[in-house]
Design a protein around this nucleic acid. Structure first.
Length: 427
RNA sequence: GGAGAGGUGGCCGAGCGGCUGAAGGCAACCGCCUGCUAAGCGGUUUUCGUCGAAAGGCGAACGUGAGUUCGAAUCUCACCCUCUCCGCCA
């Protein structure tokens, strides 16, 4: 959510930002309603002021057993007027609030203009594409051959878009989760948290999933509860509606969670394999920081995520999402895209964003810069570190051999209970 | 799920429907005094909105929402949450 005062006072800035995102939002109605709201607010507060004074008089008179009849008459009509204005004010405020909640964040100045993911500039590359003396298989072919992931079983138990991992496949998921968490907690200073996988609508609104992206969420029937699409939601909301001491910042959190996404609107895309599932595992890293440091913290967060791919020796590149590709709540986002030889393309494996105070304002997360000073909103950041399912894809496709066996990366061996190679199963 | 108790400021804890934004205590901060880690005395310290250059004024907030009333932390209703007991259960 943007600062309503920013909207009020920097109309040009906001409109330019929205245009840069390719959004056609007119602020005209907002300004009209906002002005109307302020007018009514002043009026109703004046009336309340006089009512308070008269009411006090009535109290005094009554306590002296004097007649307060005249005052009662006077204040009664003020009361009706207050009620009337209040009603129109309520309507206006709801409308304004609903609108402001649907306005996306303003892109940072380092975000380039662009319309789609095609326009995202590559900011760095690590490693290089692996060459194979044969045509590399896709991960779903490998998974079938290794008998470690079963998509039919997932569809039978739930529906399409779910899968069953088994044996070394399930172990690989678990190994990656532990490996990621260990690096974050032991080497990068993050505190591990274990959080609810189901959250209420206030939390979803706090991080920006609601009200705009309802159709992407799984909702619990009859309850004000949703399955989380990312642990960013529960982690960031840990400190919702709090005023933190400056001394506790920055806060670094990491958590493992499954993520549940309807993926509505992506029908037909990535229907095969693990790339786009309704449920996938992810380790997330989240930061709450002071505004001045948030862009340095973003670079650090990005490199924390990159570190995992370096250890796994997986070639990747980093792109800076252009204005048209930037997510709703983000001011700036780096996507890490891992090379997938079986797909012959780079795919997002981590998304690292600075939300500035956009989420903090929605969720009500503040800190006090110094004793006696006014509380200000923190900046929130998060990134995947990493998406587990897509890391499995990357490992299968990059570490495959001609006989369709897959070598386990060295960094993962300590977590694999002695398994060093995944071997095709005779059928 | 059933029965009971309760939800007040950073924390603890008062609060007959009117002068209570909220006693008292603790904590923190500032000052004074004293000068052996301490104590004493005085003062300050919620948040949001709005007007203002500022000082400050005004409005609002005692789980949430509605209601009664000229006026509600205090009365009524609904909902949420916490705790205890029972049930169920990993």
């Amino acid at each position: 959510m943007l600062d309503i005062k920013l909207l009020r006072e920097n109309r040009k800035l906001v409109e330019d930002a929205l245009a840069k995102r390719g959004m056609n939002i007119s602020l005209k109605v907002f300004y009209e309603k906002d002005a109307m709201r302020l007018e009514l607010l002043r009026k109703v507060e004046d009336l309340k002021h006089t009512r308070n004074i008269i009411s006090k008089d009535i109290g005094v008179k009554k306590s002296k057993s004097e007649d307060a009849g005249v005052l009662l008459q006077e204040v009664k009509s003020i009361g009706t007027e207050i009620d009337e204005i209040h009603n129109s004010l309520d309507v206006l405020e709801n409308e304004l609030n609903d609108f402001v909640l649907t306005v996306p964040n303003i892109p940072h100045s380092s975000v380039v203009y662009g319309r789609t993911s095609e326009d995202n500039p590559v900011v760095k590359t690590w490693g290089e594409k692996k060459e194979f003396p044969f045509t590399p298989y896709s991960h779903d072919e490998l998974a079938a051959c290794l008998d470690i992931i079963d998509f039919e079983k997932g569809a039978k138990i739930a529906t399409s878009g779910f899968s069953v991992s088994k044996g070394p496949g399930a172990l690989l998921e678990r190994a990656l989760i532990n490996f990621f968490l260990d690096v974050h907690t032991r080497e990068q200073g993050y505190t591990e948290v274990y959080i609810p996988f189901i959250v209420n609508s206030a939390s979803m609104t706090g991080t920006g999933q609601l009200p705009k992206f309802k159709e992407d969420l799984f909702k619990i029937e009859g309850e004000d509860l949703y399955l989380i699409p990312t642990s960013e939601v529960p982690i960031t909301n840990i400190h919702a509606k709090e005023i933190l001491e400056r001394s506790v910042l920055p806060k670094y959190y990491t958590a493992y969670s499954p993520c549940f996404r309807k993926e509505a609107g992506s029908y037909g895309k990535d229907t095969k394999g693990l790339i786009r599932q309704h449920q996938f595992n992810k380790v997330e890293i989240v930061k709450l920081v002071e505004p001045e440091s948030s862009y340095n913290e973003l670079e650090a967060l990005l490199s924390d995520a990159e570190e995992l791919l370096k250890r796994l020796k997986l070639h990747y590149r980093v792109v800076n999402l252009c204005s048209g590709d930037l997510g709703f709540s983000a001011a700036k986002t780096y996507d890490i895209e891992v090379w997938l030889p079986g797909q012959n393309e780079y795919r997002e494996i981590s998304s690292c964003s600075n939300f500035e105070d956009f989420q903090a304002r929605r969720a009500g997360i503040k800190y006090r810069p110094a004793k006696g000073e006014k509380p200000v909103y923190v900046h929130t950041l998060n990134g995947s570190g990493l998406a587990v399912g897509r890391t499995v894809v990357a490992i299968l496709e990059n570490y495959q051999q001609e006989d369709q066996s897959v070598v386990i990366p060295d960094a993962l061996r300590p977590y694999m209970n002695g398994v060093t190679v995944l071997k095709p199963v005779e059928k």
